[in-house]
Design a protein around this nucleic acid. Sequence first.
DNA 1: TGCATTTGACCAAT
DNA 2: ATTGGTCAAATGCA
Length: 364
Amino acid sequence: MEETLSHIVRGCKLARELESNIPNLAKQPRMLAKSCDEIMKIFGTAKERLNAQDDHSAYPYMFAQASGMETSGEMQEWLKTSYLQALQAQYGLTESKVGGIEPVTLSGHPGFELGGRDREGSARSTGSGGEFQAMEGSDSGNSNSQRLRRRKDDIRKRKETVAAPRIGNTDIPPDDNFTWRKYGQKEILGSKYPRSYYRCTHQKLYNCPAKKQVQRLEHDPFMFDITYIDDHTCHKSATAPSVPPPPPEVTPEMIQATTAQLPMGRWLSMELKPTGEAANAFVDHSQVQMHVDLGLGEGSSSSMVGTGGSTAGPSMVRFGREAEYPVVDLADTMFNSGSSSSNSMDFLFTHTEEKWEPAGDKKN
DNA sequence: TGCATTTGACCAAT
DNA sequence: ATTGGTCAAATGCA
């Protein structure tokens, strides 16, 4: 089993490397194909081994999918849902609704069909922070004093409905593990509550285009409609100043310990819907301790999130409803977690901290 | 033209 | 000094 896990880990690592090199390899389809083949081969080998395994008891979640093992419908549904949500977060699928992810057609670039048209043509690569950033950069370099705003039909949106935190300040939507800066609030015609506008804290620094709009539901004040506009590029930008440390050696013992103790779903994408019964049932907090003991959180990510995220750097690995790269996250969790503290993985399991203060009203 | 969205200056909190 | 909220005004869209 250790060897099988090593295959999976290696596959994840290669996938991540491939992802980071997409801008460079975009013009080298042969290299891309070769990389894909290699990754598929590794995962294929792993799957074959898994199929040959008789005893899955120690890894009930980890390998349920990969091995085709029978799992409860609820579990499979949850795994599917969380993965799709991650894809949506990554590729900006349009107007998905919480409680029912809309069908995703697997076609086109990284495998997904966007809800909106790609009006920027080839200059804009879906989900590619690098190219997108370059485009934004050219805009900012325009000496024309006229404001340059993206046309409304250029943006990609997705919509979520989330519940207010049960504990603490219920006037604000639950933390989504990204750092946002509020830039406006406005009374909306026909709405009882104002709409708040947020942009990514790193918008200026890294040209991160991510924005969100938060509006309390009229008929249910404890629910928020959150519209996410564009994706975060700040944590995967090639220009980001802090680069994750090179992956340390991962011993089979580490892998086994980790996988044996951590539920697969949490590990892969940390995609938990606040109202998802399956997800809630799935989280086993009794297993957190072992995960922490592994010291997986070494490095950049832990302290930042835990302290409110205001210093969150662009290279950090984020986990949340918007977790990106479900598979890559697994590798990131193992490799990138850098340094130190024994409770360095706390951020994975604490989503109650809110950094936003209640906003005052604004007349505009 | 009205409304939604964004900008940028200003200010308070840390 | 830095970060983030507020607000008037500018801008885009239907």
